[in-house]
Design a protein around this nucleic acid. Sequence first.
RNA 1: AGCGGGGUGGGGUAGCCAGGAAAUCCCGACGGGCUCAUAACCCGUAGACCGGUGGUUCAAAUCCACUCCCCGCUACCA
Length: 700
Amino acid sequence: MKEKVFIFVALPYANGPLHLGHIAGAYLPYDAFRRFMILTGREVVSASGSDEHGTPITIKAMQEGISPKEIATKFHNVNSDIFKRMNIEFNAFIETSSDLHKMVVKDFITKLIDKGYIYEGNMIQPFCPHDNMFLPDRYVKGKCPKCGYENARGDQCENCGATLEPSELINPVCILDGYTPEFRETKHLFFKLSSFQEDMEKFISERKYWRDNVLKYSRNFISQGLKDRPITRDLDWGVDIPFPGYERKKIYVWFEALIGYITGTVQALNDYNGALEHWKDKKIRHYYFMGKDNIPFHSIIWPAMLMAEGEYTLPYYVAANEYLNFQGEKFSKSGGVGISMPKLLESYNSEYIRFGVFYNLPEGHDSDFSLEEFQNKVNSELIDKFGNFVNRALILSFKKGKINRDQIAQSQRDTEAEKFMRDSLKSIINNMENVNIREAFKVWLELARYSNIYITERKPWEACKKDDANCLASIYTSMKIVFTLAVSGQIFLPETSRKLLSWLGYNEPVMLHEDLDYPVAHVLQKPEKLFEKIMSKSLNVSLKVARVMDVMDHPNAEKLYLLDLDLGEEKRRIISGIKDSYTRDALVNKKIVIVSNLKPAVIRGEKSNGMLLAAEEDGKVHLVLAPEEAIPGSEIKIGDYNIINEEISIEEFKRHEIVTYEKDGDIIPALHENNSFIPLTINGKNLTIDGKVSKGIRIK
RNA sequence: AGCGGGGUGGGGUAGCCAGGAAAUCCCGACGGGCUCAUAACCCGUAGACCGGUGGUUCAAAUCCACUCCCCGCUACCA
């Protein structure tokens, strides 16, 4: 009978599209592990879903004038699509606003109430009379009573680090509308987490095989003493509470989202009672994947909830990853750092993205993702090393025709290569078994590198001219390695592996085990290229031509202008500090160049949607100008860069050094990179600089 | 302020928890080889006193103490 395994991933919050950090931190490692479990013969049930309730979604909905459900559904669909395109698969991907989930939660909580782990208590909560709602602690800000910092949040002061209650703040205000909140007493249900102090200590001490980061966080969390936690909130978007007197409240999201794992199991098996029976089956191992911020919820709180429930199986493994940063900074949608998955998928093949993430998996510690390194690694390691070896072997084998195992006698070098291959395979399996996905991946890649050396040393192309024995043995051994790479590669690069296997005549997934059998080397059709190299480099800087329509003085700033710009289809207003160098009349109708994908900024009370390019020398500003015939709104070309047009922060823009550069006697703007200068052009013509400037001046 | 991560050849990294001969891999530089292969592949050379100081040890990039930098989190977000 097949071993059963449950694999879960933290539910993504449905208030925005996932970015690469989420994918690397949880979903892709999960997907590799799930594929591995299936390929090694386990019967897998896996689940995740959209976490759709909670205040942030209701607020976003209010701001956009639509219902919370619409927001949730929108991002549920966006994220489902991302998973599909990334080949990240689930047996069930639920929505927490579904009837099924509400039913599961209700049953779960009822059981906890019956067993006495839920009690009623009162707490003082800030209430905004203007919005007519209770506010989460962090939605209140005011002066810190400890250090006097003006912008302290209701839960903690960022300046001195003090943990606060919203009611302690001096002059508290609601961050949504600035009104002063009232403090009202409100009753809530509490989960008796405190009664699991000893059980949790024991639970954690029994899980020495977990990763260090998880153990550290968990021990730290427990040692501070487990406190009871409220599990209800004064909200109208969430799961109802099956308890009299709570008709106008909902379950707090953290409590309810965790129960989504049970909902997911029910949905995957399509059998309510059957799924719950499986949850009671202690022989089934439960694996959880998540980012590090989610550790205590999965290593402490959820296990405690399960202990309270009494019958369900506790987590076997909690795999938390660290963070993937983007070019040195944390991914942040709102801060304009990083690229969203939809954009990334527009530019790159999902297999490349998977490769790039596995290569840099933030398993033991934070790691960094930069587009440049990503392309470099895809080109040099995936395509040059792996792709090329596979291609060499396939072509040799295709030309030679079918080779049967009985036909060959391996040389010592062949046996040595085969041993290396076997050891690699064992190591991949072993590492995957212990959820060391990064290491497993490295071993897989190392096998490809080794194999290039092997095939170069054996020179089948030469051997085949002399004697058949060496020719056949070396080709057959090479193909054995290709087969091994393809089979084990199904974990990481499913499409590439599927393609490879089909060329070898395997049209179904091939199960993974230490004694892979490959009796006949036979390449059915002339092999195609597995990969195309990433040729164009990407740059997330969108520069556009803009015609100045009107110029006004900034109402609250002496040195600033407001410029109304014509960008073809679009009109924009930007703010610029060029009053000392340009009069209003000198500006009107000029064709200037702006950074169009900058995150809008508010400067002295006026909103600026972009920034113009100019060089400043000796206090005088020189505008970057587009040729007279340039069409407003058209995009500037920067060498052969592929321009990604995604909102960026000013800091990120400033990393790109645009300078004045002398070419054929003219001073023109160019991007300075790796000691070379790439001119900015439009329709093949260089941009110009207004007035006389020296070369090498920074443009900003 | 608290918590977390990091400082290793020109750039990016592995190794550190379980200390041990020549510190890994990719890019880049230089020289050579090969031609089955996707301007690939293979070999070789130069280049790192492993942030600093002190300690433990026969032995430290690796353990301990102190110290100096960097970055992230403590806003909705892994």
